[in-house]
Amino acid sequence: MKQTSIHIRGLRKSFGKGADAKEVLKGIDLSIESGQIIGYIGPNGAGKSTTVKILCGILTSFEGDIEVMGIPLRNNAIEVKRKIGYVPENGALYEALTPAEYLNLVGTLFDMSSSLIGERTDSLLKYFEMSQHANQRMDTFSKGMKQKILIIAGLINNPDILFLDEPLSGLDANSVILVKDMLTRLAKQGKTIFYSSHLMDVVEKISDRIILIDNGQVIADGTFEELQQDSKASLEQVFAKLTGGEERVGESGILDEVFKN
């Protein structure tokens, strides 16, 4: 029997207070098994990043109960953080450092030995074809190169769960293939992959289970085939249907009006 890696009950999160408060998550319940690749999708502002930030211990105030690898997140955030890796959407890096310096910093924060940090850094940089850039400052890197370093930093502690928030942003086609392959391999090793993205084709291909949220609530949860409901629709079409995107296409006439003069 597979272990439950993430267990969420009644997760709610609001920003602001009183009359100005905005509820971003409105009661999310989820149970995710180890070794699964979860595609976490939803329109802009649906609450995807907020969910990921809460699960990674970045946001600490929320309502509800969360257990990560059997550890209650509330009051045990440090312990939970040791077991996870996080790949944020955009360059959350110390760009004035080199990849070697940055990865040493991240590894040290996970209390890894210097030799282990060195070994993993070398191997992962090699895997992502970044070895020759190990000692160059990252502020000279392209967006894709920075994204690779973010992915490596998310993996350096050999996490049980890897949270990825738009990880393919800025990567070239070869690197996308590399990351997709990597995610599949990691899942086979028993790691849970929590993959939040807008790129439907990637989510469709790699996910064992797709969770669609809209307006802070889970509106669909299942395998791609289950979400298709016997149709031959792509995930993009399923997504548009469930989130009202099909209706919005009709409003595109606005654009013609804007550029008429």
């Binding site: 990674c56 970045i58 440090i78 953080k81 996870i84 996080y86």
Partner: peptide, 12 residues
């Protein structure tokens, strides 16, 4: 500005 670098790591 460094929240995404530091807060997901086990730093007290």
């Amino acid at each position: 500005s460094e929240n995404h670098v530091l807060l997901p790591r086990p730093v007290s």
